[in-house]
C-alpha cells in the first residue's frame, strides 16, 4: 500500500510514466532485433491492454467477469472475418470489432449486472462458453474448429507491416493509448463514481451515482478495449481459432489482474509482464505453466489479497466488517435490512 502507484490522485507520476514509455520504445534495440524476443514483447503489450481493461471491471468497479477471453475472441473474429470476406482494411475492421464487442458487452452487462457476484461469475463464464460453442459450430462464418488462417497484416500509408519490430511498435502505440485512456478515466468524475461503487454501493447511490448505469458503462468500455485488442491480435498472429479464447484465456487475464494488483493503473501491467515473462524465462517450466498460474493465484489471494501493486485489497473487507462478513448474502442492502429490523 506504500507504493507511489497506489496513492490516489495527487502525487506527480509523470516522470515515472515518461521513463516507462522511453524504456518500452527502446525494447527492440535492447533485444538486439531477435524476432522471438520481440514477439514476446509484443504479446506483453497486448496482455497489458487486456489485463488493464479487465481491471476496469474488477479493480475499479468491483465486479467480476470470467468472460473476458470471449470478448477478446469476439473482437479477433469480427476483425478477421471482415478483413477476409469483405477485404476491408484493418483500420476499418478494427474499430468495428471494438464497437461490436462493446455492444455485446453492454447487452450482457444490462442483463447480468444486477446478479449477485457469485452468480455474475457463473453468468459470464456461461456466456464465454456459449461464444466458444457458437464459434465452433458456425462453420459458414467462422470455419468452425479449423480456425481462420491467413489474416492480412495491417498497412500504414500503403506499407504493409510485416516485420516483428514494426508490429511491436504498432501494438505498443495501441497499448500506451489504451493505458492512457484508462488512466484518464480513472482520475475523473467517472472513475470516482466507479470506485465509489466498488467501495460502497449504498453510499454511492446516496451521492446521486447511478450504480447500475456506471457498472454497465465500465463493463462496456472494458469490452470495447478487449475487442480492439482482439483485432490487433488477429492481424498480428494471422491465424485464430476458438481455443485461443476459451476459459484458459479468461483465467489467465484474471490471474494477471489479481497478481499484479487490482484497482491501480500499474498493477495489471505488472501482472501481465510477470505472467508472460515467467514461462518464457523458465522454459523448463513451460508445461507446468498453468499449474504455476493456479498456484500463484491461490497464493496471492491468501497471502497478499491486494496483489503486488494494488490500491486496495480487492478482497479485503470493507471497513469495520471483518467478522461474519462472509455471511452477508450479496448486497449490503440486506444487511441494512437486518440492521433496520433489529
Amino acid at each position: 500500500m506504500n507504493t507511489f502507484m497506489a496513492m490516489p490522485l495527487k502525487r506527480n507520476q509523470t516522470p515515472f510514466w515518461i521513463g516507462a514509455v522511453v524504456l518500452v520504445l527502446a525494447v527492440p534495440g535492447l533485444l538486439g532485433g531477435s524476432d522471438y524476443l520481440i514477439q514476446i514483447a509484443t504479446m506483453m503489450a497486448l496482455y497489458v491492454v487486456l489485463a488493464s481493461s479487465l481491471n476496469l471491471i474488477i479493480g475499479f468497479t468491483g465486479m467480476y467477469s470470467l468472460g473476458h477471453g470471449a470478448f477478446y475472441g469476439i473482437g479477433a473474429y469480427t476483425s478477421a472475418i471482415l478483413a477476409i470476406n469483405l477485404d476491408w482494411t484493418f483500420w476499418v475492421t478494427m474499430p468495428i470489432a471494438g464497437i461490436l464487442t462493446a455492444l455485446v458487452g453492454a447487452f450482457l452487462g444490462l442483463a447480468t449486472l444486477r446478479l449477485r457476484q457469485t452468480f455474475l461469475v457463473f453468468g459470464t463464464l456461461a456466456f464465454g462458453e456459449i461464444v466458444r460453442i457458437l464459434i465452433m459450430n458456425w462453420p459458414s462464418l467462422t470455419r468452425g474448429p479449423m480456425g481462420i488462417p491467413g489474416i492480412p497484416p495491417p498497412s500504414i500509408l500503403g506499407f504493409e507491416l510485416v516485420s516483428s519490430t514494426q508490429y511491436y511498435y504498432l501494438i505498443l502505440v495501441f497499448a500506451i493509448l489504451m493505458v492512457f485512456l484508462i488512466f484518464r478515466l480513472y482520475h475523473s468524475r467517472v472513475g470516482r463514481a466507479w470506485v465509489a461503487i466498488r467501495e460502497d454501493e449504498i453510499a454511492a447511490s446516496s451521492m446521486g451515482i447511478s450504480v447500475f448505469g456506471y457498472k454497465v458503462l465500465a463493463f462496456t468500455i472494458a469490452c470495447l478495449i478487449a475487442g480492439l485488442a482482439g483485432a490487433f491480435y488477429a492481424h498480428f498472429i494471422t491465424f485464430i481459432s476458438a481455443d485461443q479464447f476459451g476459459m484458459n484465456e479468461s483465467f489467465l487475464i484474471l490471474t494477471m489482474v489479481a497478481l499484479g494488483g487490482t484497482g491501480s493503473i500499474i498493477g495489471p501491467i505488472i501482472g501481465a509482464l510477470i505472467l508472460i515473462i515467467i514461462p518464457e524465462a523458465f522454459r523448463f517450466l513451460a508445461e507446468y505453466r498453468m499449474v504455476l498460474y493456479g498456484a500463484l493465484l491461490i497464493l496471492v489471494i491468501v497471502v497478499k489479497p491486494e496483489g503486488l501493486a494494488g490500491v486496495k485489497g480487492l478482497f479485503a473487507p470493507a471497513s469495520g466488517a471483518r467478522r461474519f462478513s462472509f455471511l452477508r448474502s450479496g448486497f449490503s442492502a440486506e444487511c441494512e435490512k437486518v440492521e433496520g429490523a433489529k
Binding site: 457469485t118 461469475v121 489471494i301 489479497p305 480487492l314 478482497f315 470493507a318 467478522r323 452477508r328
Partner: peptide, 11 residues
C-alpha cells in the same frame, strides 16, 4: 479466509 468477502474464496 474467513471474514473476507466470499468472492475472494470463489476466485
Amino acid at each position: 479466509m474467513r471474514g473476507v468477502p466470499h468472492i475472494a474464496s470463489l476466485v
